[in-house]
């Protein structure tokens, strides 16, 4: 990741939590206090929120100083395989983003189809992103993995697995 992106991320995270604190103080404005005291449902969150905002502001200031002094360093760029297809190169370049997108899809698939079908789709897809692409090995890992997880969780431990609304 480039230094500028890291700087933006740091500022973004600190600002986001200041916004959360502001939102919490607005939401909690009608919470009652114990009569005659400052004790109430909003006392502790507001107290924590004040400290959090202070630390966030210090962090933002420190980050700006470090950025100006070029103390935030970029990560090393990964070499892309020049002989692969544009799609494979794009997966290589944006591996984390693809994986996060796949996780969102996995969540939606779990909600819809439940554990078995979703995981049978998820494992080969994530392995592709992770550059593990031997067809036989991927098939074996997928089928045996899902079977073992099902047996371990559902059969042996009696742990319920996501069912999906289509099958519930």
């Amino acid at each position: 990741m480039k230094a500028k992106q890291k700087f933006g991320l740091e500022i973004g995270i600190n600002t986001f939590f200041i916004m959360v604190v502001l939102m919490m103080s607005v939401v909690s404005k009608n919470y009652d206090f114990v009569q005659g005291t400052i004790l109430g449902a909003r006392t502790f969150p507001i107290l924590v929120g004040i400290f959090l905002s202070l630390f966030a502001l210090v962090n933002i200031a420190a980050s700006v100083v470090r950025y100006r002094k070029n103390e935030i360093v970029s990560d090393e760029k990964e070499q892309l395989d020049s002989d692969s297809s544009p799609f494979v190169r794009s997966v290589q370049k944006y591996r984390v983003q693809y994986a996060l997108g796949l996780l969102v899809c996995y969540y939606l698939l779990l909600l819809t189809f439940g554990f078995i079908i979703s995981t049978l789709i998820f494992i080969p897809s994530i392995l592709f992103i992770l550059e593990y692409r031997k067809p036989v090995a991927v098939s074996l890992v997928t089928v045996i993995g899902v079977a073992l997880l099902y047996i371990a969780f559902k059969v042996l431990l009696g742990v319920p697995l996501p069912q999906g609304f289509l099958f519930s």
């Binding site: 919490m24 909690s28 919470y31 009652d32 114990v34 909003r42 400290f51 959090l52 630390f55």
Partner: peptide, 24 residues
């Protein structure tokens, strides 16, 4: 300390232990 405050803030969701008000 910022990270610790995030944890403390997360812990405040749910019923308040003193007034029993459902919080956030």
């Amino acid at each position: 300390l910022f990270a610790g405050c995030i944890g403390l803030l997360i812990s405040t969701f749910g019923i308040d232990p003193i007034t029993s008000v459902p919080r956030f």
